[in-house]
Design a protein around this nucleic acid. Structure first.
Lengths: 135, 135
DNA sequence: AAAATACTTGACAAAAAGAGTAAAGTATTT
DNA sequence: AAATACTTTACTCTTTTTGTCAAGTATTTT
């Protein structure tokens, strides 16, 4: 029931990029230092975020990363999906993971809760947090 | 981000008990058989649910378990807390698990999402599922 | 062009968590 | 007293998580 440290690191990296959005590119190294995220691990995280189309990268000296969309257009759900895969509350909701699909007394419940959770995560954007939007 | 198999088994056991609520006591063995849950594991799960005051047990031949409250009075959150501990979306929200509490760019967000999740789980009771309540 | 910088990618390893077993013990009823 | 069933601890196997390492690719500045 918890976000992994990979997910948390990713969120923090994205928030850091949001903070500096518009200015220019931010190097992985500076994110690593400011956020205390192991460099080698961060690179893999940024790579996954890149694959998902959430950030773009600029190579060469002075290079780094920047958001590919506005902070208001990137949800927490987007970030977690990129780093942790499909957002489901239970493994058994994934394809081929349940061997009593038609007989499970809890399936409807789990499905409903899972959808609700995903909805919550998709409703909040990076901008909402940065702006300090409270509710 | 997922409920453990322990949590899932527990949910299913509780739903099974809800189904038979009022009639009499249900043995661990019959739950194990009907739900396909390993007996030894189920016993530990029922024990935890008992400790949490969610079920009561009757010993001796013909003994078993029954709900301690009405299905409408037991939430999914109650069950998961009993089996998996405090419901938090991130480890770093627990005491002594975060070493940059006052400096974490994501803390407010995580706290907010975590509360929201817990609220969702506490809003749904066993009765809601059993009755097939859809929304 | 070369060197420096920085992103890309795959393979691997240590550590933690999850899932379940085993076995012995305790309590209660027939 | 024998059967049934709950209680509890300890342990093991497997999977997942959390990274590290190292080699490679691309781009820019000098």
């Amino acid at each position: 029931m918890k976000i992994s440290s990979k997910g948390r690191y990713g969120l923090r990296a994205m928030l850091e990029l949001s903070r500096k959005n518009g200015i220019d590119v931010t190097s992985a190294k500076s994110i690593s230092e400011e956020q205390g995220i192991p460099m080698a691990y961060l690179e893999r995280i940024l790579y996954a975020l890149h694959q998902a189309g959430l950030v773009e990268s600029v190579r060469g000296p002075g290079g780094g990363y920047k958001l590919r969309k506005l902070p208001s257009e990137i949800s927490i759900g987007d970030i977690l999906r990129a780093l942790e895969g499909p957002i489901v509350i239970s493994k058994c909701l994934l394809k081929n993971e349940c061997n009593r699909i038609n007989d499970c007394i809890a399936r409807v419940l789990l499905k409903r809760l899972s959808n609700k959770f995903e909805q919550v995560l998709d409703e909040v954007s990076l901008e909402d947090i940065l702006g300090g939007k409270d509710e």
